[in-house]
Design a binder for these strands. Structure first.
Lengths: 340, 340
DNA sequence: ATGAAAGCGCTAACAG
DNA sequence: CTGTTAGCGCTTTCAT
């Protein structure tokens, strides 16, 4: 037998603006104003409303607000695999930028497969105002389809008609190749990433161009998977290639490769120089620590969040492509070749 | 001058169930049923509704659905710092379990500070049905307050009146200490985590108990921060302690410590054995690779998601405390002491 | 500066 | 099996 006359709240029922309004003796709309446009309401009544609101432990009902305003104030960040630590900086900086405009960034794990990635995107798509896709594996068409429904920005890949933030490998690669050339290397081997990876192709282009410029030979081999284990599995082929320097599609590959080679008695960097891509968390856990071509992840994160927000607010209309610069982080895994 | 009579949709306006209903010549509620309880509607009409729905590119309005049903079908995972890779497995497994019940898990980064952690929690709290807090830094009271509003489960910490999933360090620690004793060590040093860390205290308890049992001396020193850098900074003190074996509060500390010591010419594990906690991603990047006491993160994730879901569905009523077992992962960083 | 009233898109009784 | 109706909690004109 619920009694409705007193001020006492049932401990489970959440207070609504109606409750606050009644308790404060004002109209619900005034409560709403006091909360959203504090300046448009008399200071005294506002203060009183605020007080009763916290007294009743009132929290705005998010869903109702979203239904009415059409905006969730939330951005979704989708990463194809959280096991790749690459996205740390992206999440942090995207979150920072978003918070400035009162937005929240949530990360959703798209697990391994391409299909789950799309599924995840579709799951959250109507709970967010915009989507940031990092190194997505789904098809261009899928991405363009998503973009019909929400604002989307893609990181680490170029998609027609979609805003993208992509690292330009040229600078970092040219630094790397010059370092290698200066150290007397003649032939550099690229361990490629997934066959369809847009970034892998881009990186290989940059490497072969830089090698040509420096009069080095560039060769390329495929990897089974862009993981530590994939790196291990490619070790034999690397050794057999006769190259004295290797650049891998990412740091995970480099780490696996380095370990496997070290187990086989190959001294890094004396017998073989190794350079990775991304400068991931953990790149400096190895011995020697890994020399790597770093993409400014934080910057990618803040730029992409900024881009989504700008599209949302209408500041920016057409798709933009933003390039960010890469740079070589020199550590111990690359050096002069000192024979076998 | 908008015309409402034709079937053509404005390309920006999203279709509602009303549009679908009108187009399909049925009532909105029938559309709703067809979508949510397919079996409660005539197969033919259902098929027709589905067809028109995809034809109109219809997507359920999440906010409206949430407002009506009171359930977001979303769980929030809050981690105090995404820079700590510990949560990989938690997110993945929690997501898997949640997906089985048609829930989505989103991760929100609580950045560095305790205050931001609480702020993040409050931000998402009304956009989710439940919250999983991993190694939260906020006060017990704050957590209990959150639990008044939402279902919450805490991982890696015990909080009065709240459901918790906590790793019991005893098993892993006893394996570690026995390994150390078997290798001739006499004194083990514990490098503690943050002063207020519940887990750190728990781990120290387990270590001193195990050492006593094995007739080893246990000593403890503090660290500045539970990070790689914190590990580096504690290296001098570790060396000065005269201990031949060290267990650190987490792997990050162990890695920093190991590197700094190696730089100073200390051979691991010959001159000093090092054992970490957590077996994080990257623990095997080091040389020697890190021996570590692993908490079953994936299991913690799936259990906590299960717990939240169970509370949500009313299957479980009272707060539960679930223990998960730890185990020693033996790699190269701990071994027999071979003198200085 | 505040009140009254309508409606966002959906679901869930209740009828029929 | 399907239609009618009411309402979730909030914002937002429009009045006053």
């Amino acid at each position: 037998m619920p009694s409705e006359e007193t001020t006492v709240q049932s401990r489970t029922a959440k207070a609504t603006i109606y409750d606050v309004a009644r308790q404060a003796g004002v109209n619900p709309s005034t409560v709403s104003r006091a909360l959203n446009n504090p300046e448009r309401v008399n200071a005294r009544t506002r203060r009183f409303i605020e007080a009763t609101a916290i007294e009743l432990n009132f929290q705005l009902n998010h869903a109702a607000q979203v239904l009415q305003t059409g905006s969730t104030k939330t951005l979704g960040l989708i990463v194809s695999d959280v096991t790749n630590p690459t996205f740390f900086g992206i999440l942090r900086e995207a979150g920072r930028v978003a918070a400035q405009r009162d937005y929240t960034v949530v990360l959703v794990n798209a697990a391994e497969s391409e299909s789950k990635e799309l599924a995840s995107a579709n799951r959250v798509i109507n709970a967010v105002d915009g989507l940031i896709l990092t190194s997505p594996r789904m098809s261009d068409t899928d991405i363009q389809l998503l973009a019909k429904t929400t604002q989307v920005v893609v990181i680490n890949r170029e998609v027609n008609g979609i805003s993208c933030v992509i690292p330009d490998p040229d600078r970092g690669v040219s630094q790397a190749v010059r370092l290698l050339a200066g150290n007397g290397h003649k032939k550099v081997l690229f361990v490629a990433g997934p066959e369809l990876s847009w970034m892998s192709a881009r990186r290989w282009d940059a490497i072969s161009a830089a090698c040509e410029w420096c009069h080095l030979t560039a060769e390329r081999i495929e990897s089974a998977a862009p993981t530590v284990d994939g790196g291990r599995r490619v070790a034999r082929a690397v050794k057999a290639s006769g190259a004295t320097a290797v650049i891998t599609h990412n740091d995970l590959l480099a780490i696996g490769l380095m370990h496997e080679l070290q187990n086989a008695g190959v001294v890094i960097p004396d017998a073989l120089s190794i350079i990775g891509f991304d400068d991931i968390f953990g790149a400096d856990f190895t011995t020697p620590s890994l020399t790597s071509i770093r993409s400014p992840l934080g910057q990618s994160g803040s730029l992409s969040a900024g881009l989504v927000l700008a599209s949302l607010s209408g500041t920016v209309k057409d798709p933009q492509t933003l390039l960010v610069d890469t740079e070589l982080v020199i550590r111990g895994s690359a050096g002069p070749w000192k024979g076998v």
